[in-house]
Write a protein that binds this DNA or RNA. Structure first.
Lengths: 349, 349
DNA sequence: TTGTAAGCGTTATCAT
DNA sequence: ATGATAACGCTTACAA
């Protein structure tokens, strides 16, 4: 627990010089640098991040907001953990620490206070929904010029910094894969519209069908909530109409697997399964029986990209004009490519 | 961005009083309190967490160290996400923020610097292994009197604060469940010994067999590394000796599922499967085909408990004696109960 | 190239 | 019950 003063004394310099050396700023004579480094090393001096943050008015923290996952199991932990890892990896490169917060189920999250309290310098929001409160919160953030990035959710008509994957294309690929093999009666189990991702998948599905000269049969459009249970429920319909459904495309792996389970519960075995394609390519996909074809989403890379965008400061580049903060960047939405991973579940035997 | 001074002026009190009201310390006249609260509300004043931390020499952050998970897929993200949620939930109750850090694969983690830099006030370590470097790092932490808690790993002969589940009992239950149904040739696929959890499971297995008047056949003790792949590899042995193995107990769900897959790859169908019991009761267990019996571990509650122990300060209760820091608490290991969840995979037909 | 000193926005101690 | 005021440990002009 050596103090900076001790280091300064031992090195025979002023405290300011110690700081300069340790921060690598200003011109320093090589010998001084060496002396300071030695003294600091010898005394085991470690500068206080607290004092530094305070002096700089920068926390050095990157906030990450996660949806409250446990018990709910709407989504697979897989995808948040991948994104978080990507974020963590890039944050470390920028010597930022990760401040993780869980969005509380009921209450509205006050994002701006996070910044005002100076707990974070920038912030990444995962699992946001397109509802009124969420939107208002983001608009306030944007308005006040705080650097933030939304992942996996698009807010139409806003110019937020967003990182997402190309779900239109991913869904189109999935459908094309099915139609190319001659599947004609394709059921689509989508998630709630409150996620832009769901809407995009819908768009991709229509596009894919269209390219094959078909269109979506409304009676084959099923709705779930991304949980396995909702897949099991949807299986009731699939089972009833098994003769008129030859393939199922689900908006995530959990629902796809849920449908498989639901069919099994009704005594329908894999031999009589329709073709299946899921989404996310989570580890559940390869554990499924039969192994589930799925659209791969580069979650890890999306996490990295989000941090890069924040650090590069594209959104932080704001300037005051007429007393109001104006973001310089206009189109700040980045879309990473998706890819179809083909496994046994969707291959014609 | 109102300052404390403005609030003080508007309320007609001193800045110190503003602080006192907002922190709820010291005696305050009710009317003063009201005036301050009003002024503060009206101006939208938010105290700087940075300055506060600095003044108090407390970051208000709880560090959480996670193993570097992505790509590796040794463990399921499930269990870290559950623990993290439990930690987050309890941390919020104590108005602490979560600072999560990923342990870098190669390099040794310097835990003490975390404290010296004052980035965290306490810290929880997940996914630690019992190797020399890790132990040394922990000993240093302990030595310097920093409050920390190790989860899911026991360091023999140390008096670290630890939170774990009763894996001896969990494994014993799994084995008893199998022997009770008359299974006699039980293969045990364990994880690496560098995790104390593996050793405990081994102990429970021996105990369970012993209670049934049997003992572990060394040739039926298989080794994996908790990955699905290692389960697939172990399946080679199980397949070869299928006639002399009637049940498989795996140290986690991923490996159990891996064995199932390996058997399938070799043309062995569910009808010819041995009984299976996995461990963790991750969501993969209920998604497996057949649904996998598994030992449930209360990860979420473990996370909560870890935070409670740190906050309650059992480990922080150190005192200086003869110039060295001595921990007051002696036995600081908490074990939460495990429970067997029975599903189709282990039920005699 | 280096030293001096003024903040940074709180908390906490000591008066009053 | 409240007001002054000295820390807290660092960064960063400004001086030298």
């Amino acid at each position: 627990m050596a103090s900076r003063k001790e280091v300064a004394d031992l090195a025979g310099v002023s405290e300011a010089t110690v700081s300069r050396v340790l921060n690598g700023v200003g011109p320093i004579k090589e010998e001084t640098r060496r002396k300071v480094l030695e003294a600091s090393e010898q005394l085991g001096y470690v500068p206080s991040a607290l004092a530094r943050s305070f002096a700089r008015s920068k926390s050095g923290n990157l906030g990450v907001v996660l949806p409250y996952v446990p018990k709910a199991h709407l989504f697979s932990a897989y995808f948040f953990s991948e994104m978080l890892s990507g974020i963590g990896s890039k944050a470390r490169d920028n010597s930022m620490d990760l401040l993780v917060m869980f969005r509380t189920p009921g209450e509205v999250m006050n994002y701006t206070d996070l910044f005002r309290r100076q707990k974070v310098d920038a912030c990444i929001i995962l699992g946001a929904r397109d509802d009124h409160e969420e939107l208002a919160a983001m608009q306030q953030l944007h308005q006040e010029g705080h650097p933030f990035c939304v992942m996996n959710q698009h807010f139409e008509g806003q110019s937020f910094t967003e990182v997402d994957a190309d779900h239109v294309e991913g869904s189109r690929l999935a459908i094309r894969h099915l139609t190319d093999q001659g599947y004609r009666k394709i059921a689509f189990l989508n998630g709630p519209d409150s996620y832009s991702n769901s809407q995009e998948r819908m768009e991709g599905v229509c596009l894919g069908l269209q390219e094959a000269g078909m269109e979506l049969d409304p009676s084959l459009l099923l709705k779930g909530n991304y949980s396995r249970r909702s897949g099991i429920e949807a299986a009731a319909i699939v089972a009833d109409r098994l003769h008129e459904i030859d393939a199922v495309f689900a908006a995530n792996d959990r629902m796809a697997i849920g449908v498989m389970h639901g069919l099994r519960e009704r005594g329908i075995g894999p031999a009589d399964f329709p073709a299946f394609v899921g989404y996310d390519d989570s580890d559940a996909a390869e554990m499924a029986v039969p192994p589930l074809s799925s659209v791969r989403v580069p979650f890890f890379e999306m996490g990295e990209l989000a941090v890069s965008k924040l650090m590069h400061g594209s959104v932080g580049d704001t300037h005051k004009a007429n007393n109001s903060v104006v973001a310089v960047t206009e189109s700040a939405r980045a879309l990473l490519p998706t890819e179809l991973i083909i496994r046994a579940s969707s291959i014609r035997q």
